[in-house]
Design a protein around this nucleic acid. Structure first.
Lengths: 146, 146
DNA sequence: CAATTTAAGGACTTTTTTATCCTTTATTGT
DNA sequence: ACAATAAAGGATAAAAAAGTCCTTAAATTG
């Protein structure tokens, strides 16, 4: 469903939000450790997320990645689209060049409903809200004894 | 959602069923043409599906791939699992090593519902039924002027 | 039985994804 | 201004997925 890059991206951004809510900027290394992802690869993904303004970053000492008011409205849907593109939401799931309501592939109508459900899931909560759930201990980003 | 291999596999098996309902066995080349997929790659995928008994095959002249009573109960779920594995149905969607009801990742509960929906979609109809819909012209496997 | 046909199997190539490393640039504190 | 720190960027490497090709094995027909 999600690529590895996307999984790392999701966990990283939630972790960044969690720390930002506590007033901390965090470095790529710390992030990678806390979400159980390879550091250099994670750094690459974060770079892209900064470029697309899903999160912010600052260089130099006391710098790091962060999220604030400017990023408050982003959801998983935005993040997933940046990293994995819109293949999960758009286009024929069987790869037909011409697939539409009047010329539907065997999965067309059913996939449409599943996609609505998926988009619902990905837009229901903001990334910030997901981080708040982690902060409250309702959900976790890695094994919880970490 | 589905790998290329899986997309080709789905379309191929539906085409094979469609032809089998008309009493025809079909060769890899014909299949690949009708589902708009690369022939040698499609042949590889079909090999695997035969090995896992999703379809049947016969060598030699008048041979080819086919489906019959022995394959009647298979659904997309079976096929997808053979080709893409169970990643779409099982395991943590964020890759957490320990993700469970009591130690859930941020997507755990929502993904569970989506997966139920996905499995519903993939088990609702047999591959044979999907082929019958194609035969009736309700759905298509490639551009419909083919 | 010989020729032909078609799937099976294995080796191989290409492309994409995943992952690492090194250099440069920006920022901070002294 | 200088040293230290952290992200940005680019080049490269490894692994997986996608795709091809060639040889072998099985079945059919004349």
């Amino acid at each position: 469903m999600f690529s590895k890059a996307c999984q790392y991206g999701i966990k990283s951004v939630i972790y960044i939000w969690k720390q930002s809510l506590l007033g901390n900027k965090v470095g790529a290394k710390e992030i990678a450790e806390h979400v159980d992802a390879p550091e250099p690869f994670t750094a690459k993904i974060l770079q892209e997320l900064v470029r697309k303004k899903i999160i912010g970053s600052q260089k130099g000492p006391t710098g790091g990645f962060y999220a604030d008011g400017a990023h408050e409205s982003f959801t998983l849907r935005d993040l997933v689209e940046v990293i994995d593109g819109d293949g999960l939401f758009k286009g024929c799931s069987l790869g037909l060049k011409e697939c539409s309501e009047t010329n539907p592939c065997p999965l067309h109508h059913e996939i449409k409903k599943v996609r609505t459900h998926v988009v619902d899931m990905l837009t229901k909560k903001s990334l910030k809200q997901l981080a708040q759930e982690v902060e409250r201990g309702e959900t976790v980003l890695a094994r919880f004894d970490f």
